[in-house]
Amino acid sequence: MIQVKNVTKKYGKFTAIDNISFEVKDGEVVGLLGPNGAGKSTTMNMITGYIDSTAGQILVNGVNVEKRPRKAKKQIGYMPESVPLYTELTVKEFIKYMAQLKLVKRKELKSEVNKVIEEVGLKDVENKLIRNLSRGYKQRVGIAGALVGNPKVIILDEPTVGLDPKQITEIRELIKKLGKSHTVILSSHILSEISQICENVIIINKGKIVAIDTPSNLEKKTSNKNIISLTVEDKKGNMDKIKDKINDAKEVKLIKDNEDGTKQYQIISEENIDLRKKLFEILPKEEIVIFELKKEESTLEDAFMSLISDEKNTDKKEEKR
C-alpha cells in the first residue's frame, strides 16, 4: 500500500531524514514513534506530498507521490500536527470544503459530509463556528477533514496531543474504529497509546529508523534479562545467603527498606530461566515471609528507551573518535 524507499530529506546541510525505507500494508494501523524532532512529521509530510524528498521515492498504492501527486493525494487523508482549520467556518462548512477539495462528486457531497459528521461524533456541533469549539472537538473536526472523501489511507500526526484523558480515550476509540476499514499511520511520542492502537511500530530517532516490529515483539526483544521483584519480611537476615542457594540467580539487589520492616529486592536471572517457583519453595524454608512476588514485565517504554539510548551511546563513541 505505502512504500517508502530509501527516502532522504535534507534542509541545507542538516539531514532531517536519513535514508529510511519501510512498508505499510493494506488495512494496517502503524505507529510512528520517536522523540520530538526525530522526523516523524517530516516523514508524514513527504508521504502526503506536502514537501518533496531530497532522494528516494514514496509510492502510495503503486503511485509515486512526487510524479503523480493528484492520483496519490486522492487516496490520502491527512491531519497535520498543528490541526490547522478554517476557524471562520462552521464545522459543516469546513467538512464540505474539505470534501470538495478532495474531489467528492457533487451528488454525493451532502451524504458524504453527513456520514463523516455522524462517524466522528460532531452532530451536536455541526453548525457551530470552529473558532468556538473546544480542543477535543477541534481535533475531531481535523480527523473528519482527513476522513472525508473516504481515502484509503489516513495519516494522523499526533492526534491526541493536548487533550484531556477522557478525550484521549475517545479519540483512541475513534482511531481503532477507523483502523478496521482504513490503513492508518499515526505518530505519537506517547508509548502506551501506540501499544494500544497499533499493530506495527516504526521507531525513528534522529531521522533514522531504529526498529520496525509489533509492540509485543519489541517488548520481548529488548528484555534480555528476567527480573523478579520481591517484597519480604526477613527477620533473621537470611536474604544475604539466598544467592548461594539459588544457583541461577545472577544478582540479588536490595532496592528499598520499607518502613513496616519489609524489604524490597530485585532478583535478576537469565532470560530463559524463571525463578518464581524456586523462590516460593526456598524462601519459606529460610524463614523468609513473602509479601509480594512479581515478574517485571518489560514495556514498550523500556524497549523505546533502550533503543534510543543505544543510539545515543554509539553517537557518543563516534564523537570521541
Binding site: 509530510n45 502526503t48 506530498g49 506536502y50 501527486p69 493528484r70 492520483k71 493525494k73 486522492k74 490520502i76 491527512y78 497535520p80 490547522p84 474539505m98 477539495l101 478532495k102 474531489l103 477533514g145
Partner: peptide
C-alpha cells in the same frame, strides 16, 4: 497544508 495535500 490542507490545501497543498489535497488533490487540487
Amino acid at each position: 497544508q490542507l490545501l497543498l495535500t489535497s488533490p487540487r
